[in-house]
Structures are given as structure tokens and as C-alpha cells.
């Protein structure tokens, strides 16, 4: 017989008020896995806003850049005039950021050799689509560390990128086979997998505490 669906975070304590424990939380909603991030944040008692315009960007204190297609997201960030304001606010640290998969690619170190152009917010090189095509996508356990605690996490890796050459002062939050798959630098968290597609909310909670 099938087992009942996994219990997920039934003991989680949503921030009081259901409103804004860390200010206004947004999800960049140009393209990609927006709805799963909105749902994950709602589970934590947050009422997130969708960000598609410069006005909406100016009004948020925290922003998730979801998975999607990095080439498409880069195209739309430019078309909508969001790229520069986003980069400025990330660099002056007035915006806490959480980039998953395509979001992590965009926030990585700038480079000339691979599209799309990166925002250069976190000092790490992120290789796009580094495991291969969809047939090489996988789900597997990853080891949490540091601020994420010791319990392993589930990693959903979809046409995922890989980190390399992380700079000084970058904290590793999770690894798979010794290789970093989640990182934190200053007010930005990057991960190469999709925590929004799993039931574990530790990374989203950490993002709300940045």
C-alpha cells in the first residue's frame, strides 16, 4: 500500500502576524517556479508579493529569484529595466536575496565566457546546466551544515548549475559529495537545487532571517 504523504514541518512556527517579520518579501515573477516559492513562504506565515516592475522591486526588502530559464530571466530583467536597480540594491545590501538554480546563476560572479551575463552579487563562479540535460536531472540527499543544522536535506536538481572557486568569507550551507550546493555571503543565499519543490523549509526560514 502507499504510505501517507510525508509530514512536512507540522511543528514549524510561522512568524507572528502573518505580515512582515523582515519587511516586505517578494518573489521575482518574470518567469519560472514562482508559485512554489509563494506557497513555501506562505507556509512560513509570510504574505509575499510578486515582483515584475521597478516600482514593485523598490518596495520589497527581501527577494527570491526563483528557478526558471536563466537566459529568459536575464532577457526579461533587461527588458523590464530591473537588472541595474536589482544589482544596486544587492550591492548596497538594502535587499536580502535568495537565488535558487537560475536565480543562483544570475547572482554569481560576472564572466565573459558564458551567457547569460551575471549580476556579480556573490563571489562564486556558477556554471550553467552543469550536470547535463533533463535526463541527468536527479533527486538526492544533501548534507546540511552551519546555520542549516545537521539534518540532511532533500535536493531536487533540475538541469542544475554547479558552484566553483568560491571566494573568501563565503559560508557553505549544504554539500553534496563534498561539493557546495548552498552558500551564503552577506545578505544573499544561493542554492543550485530547488528547496521550494521539497517540504523542508529551513532555507526559506534562513532567508527570512538574513
Amino acid at each position: 500500500m502507499t504510505s501517507p504523504p510525508e509530514e512536512s514541518n507540522s511543528s514549524a512556527q510561522p512568524p507572528a502576524g502573518g505580515g512582515a517579520p523582515g519587511g516586505v518579501v517578494g518573489v521575482l515573477a518574470l518567469q519560472g517556479a514562482v508559485a512554489p516559492h509563494l506557497a513555501a513562504l506562505a507556509e512560513l506565515g509570510v504574505d509575499p508579493v510578486e515582483v515584475r516592475t521597478t516600482e514593485a522591486l523598490a518596495a520589497v526588502d527581501r527577494l527570491v529569484i526563483p528557478g526558471g530559464e536563466s537566459t529568459t530571466l536575464d532577457h526579461l530583467l533587461r527588458t523590464e529595466g530591473l537588472r541595474e536597480p536589482l544589482r544596486q540594491r544587492a550591492l548596497d545590501r538594502s535587499l536580502a536575496l535568495f537565488g535558487t538554480c537560475a536565480g543562483a546563476i544570475l547572482l554569481g560572479r560576472d564572466r565573459e565566457d558564458e551567457r547569460p551575463r551575471r549580476l556579480g552579487v556573490v563571489d562564486v563562479t556558477v556554471d550553467r546546466n552543469a550536470y547535463g540535460r533533463q535526463m541527468d536531472s536527479f533527486i538526492g540527499p544533501i548534507e546540511a551544515e552551519g546555520a542549516l543544522g545537521a539534518e540532511p536535506l532533500e535536493g531536487v536538481f533540475i538541469r542544475a548549475p554547479r558552484f566553483r572557486d568560491a571566494g573568501e568569507g563565503i559560508e557553505v550551507l549544504a554539500r553534496r559529495g563534498g561539493e557546495a550546493v548552498a552558500l551564503r555571503q552577506a545578505r544573499t543565499i544561493l542554492c543550485t537545487f530547488h528547496p521550494e519543490l521539497s517540504s523542508d523549509r529551513r532555507l526559506h526560514r534562513l532567508f527570512l532571517d538574513l
Partner: peptide, 28 residues
């Protein structure tokens, strides 16, 4: 959308990662 209706675990994980790619294409 976690493919819990598929009983075999390996098959379920394949289906989940595939639904995951569909999620990534949303809004596009």
C-alpha cells in the same frame, strides 16, 4: 504535484523531477 500517486520510489522520483522541469517553464 509531488507524484505521490506513483508507488515505486525510483519511478516517483523520475516523475517528480520531470514535473519540476515543467514548473521551471511556467510563465514562459
Amino acid at each position: 504535484r509531488d507524484a505521490h500517486w506513483i508507488r515505486d520510489e525510483a519511478a516517483r522520483e523520475i516523475h517528480r523531477k520531470n514535473i519540476g522541469l515543467a514548473e521551471m517553464l511556467c510563465g514562459g
